[in-house]
Nucleic acid binder design. Sequence first.
DNA 1: TCTGGGGTCCTAGGACCC
DNA 2: TCTGGGGTCCTAGGACCC
Length: 419
Amino acid sequence: MSDKKRIIFHIDVNSAFLSWEAAYRLQQGEKIDLREIPSVVGGSEESRHGIVLAKSILAKNHKIKTGEPLFTARQKCPELVVVSPRHNLYLQCSDSLVELLKDYTPVIQRYSIDECFLDFTNMEHIYPDIIKLANDIRERVKRELGFTVNIGISNNKLLAKMASDFKKPDKVHTLFPEEIKSKMWTLPVEDLFFVGRATLPKLNKLNIFTIGDLANYDLNIIKNIFKSHGVMFWNYANGVDDSEVRKSNRVEVKSIGNSTTLPFDVKDKETAHKILLSLVETVGMRLRKSQNCCKLVSIYLRDSDFISYSHQIKLYCSTDSTKVIAKICFQLFDESWKYRHLRSMGVSVSELCNNDFFQSSIFDDPNLEKNRSIDNVMDLIRSKYGNNSVIRGTFLHSGLHPTTGGVESEDYPIMSSIL
DNA sequence: TCTGGGGTCCTAGGACCC
DNA sequence: TCTGGGGTCCTAGGACCC
């Protein structure tokens, strides 16, 4: 990589889920804009998913935080409007944004559903004025898609990301190295990327309260206390980050998991096994779709008193079979369950490897081959007709979802111009 | 009072081997 | 019987992100 200064944008959708919900509702003829009242997108309290997923700026002014229970959010603001999430709609909005951004550069990293990094290095002949470019993008997103974004500009991803977090909404900010002192070092240290709620009190104990305090602290002491994590955020505090903007489709996934908080506490092994199976159904489908097998299977349990634990096992032989993975999960469960009532359960597979070899060697074992055919046929039918078009007999009349965590196949019109 | 779901990465400690 | 130290692998748990 050359020493030439890079030009990186970080684009962040303002209150993403809430903005997308608001834009969609206006399109559908609703009169009230959720962005202009104290409102949140939140899960169903009845099924114990009642937390804040996204908040309007007016809700934020009431000190409502993302991730907090809806119950406490209402205490802070009794007139709060709560709307249910529509994840498929948000995926489509996210896709529309990325499609629009592709008009400007091919080097886009999709960092999350509502954040992208764009690289404009060596493009000054096309975009001589990058501030104007950012404002053009910002205006076009608002005009064509109906929601607003913040754009942060700098020479690396970290600084661009910090910049996009400055004043919101609908703003463009720069944070070039010469601006670090005035724009970033004055901020509280918890605003720094990767300084979370466990790290903050430890930093405060060292008399570190601002990002500037951290940047100017003795690196050796930081390293001793926080190890590699400390070296990373000390560099961040000094604006150092040389990571590349990676085209997202080239990043391979490392683990595939599915977990759920149950609408009721689970008290018996039989029900728990059924729920594990339903979780494995979606994990297995996604694993096969990614053309991988896994070598590590783990389960995750959370008691009704909120104590959680996990159990895992490394496989001698990698697999992508729903039946095999489910059987392992049952065994893991039986080995680890502490007989307390369960609030939440999860399944995850990792240490993924390409399934090519597996496919060619499988024909030695007719039983494995048969299971594989069943998986493949079920995948095909479900991809065509929806996840619940074929279900295992064990879920009939059980009152349980046969596949947990799958997205419903409801469709929403692509966000188009809203005038 | 009630507290989601999807990930990644790191560390500590124990088992085991030489 | 008790005495090393280094390396690797495995597991559990924690921290962080959106």
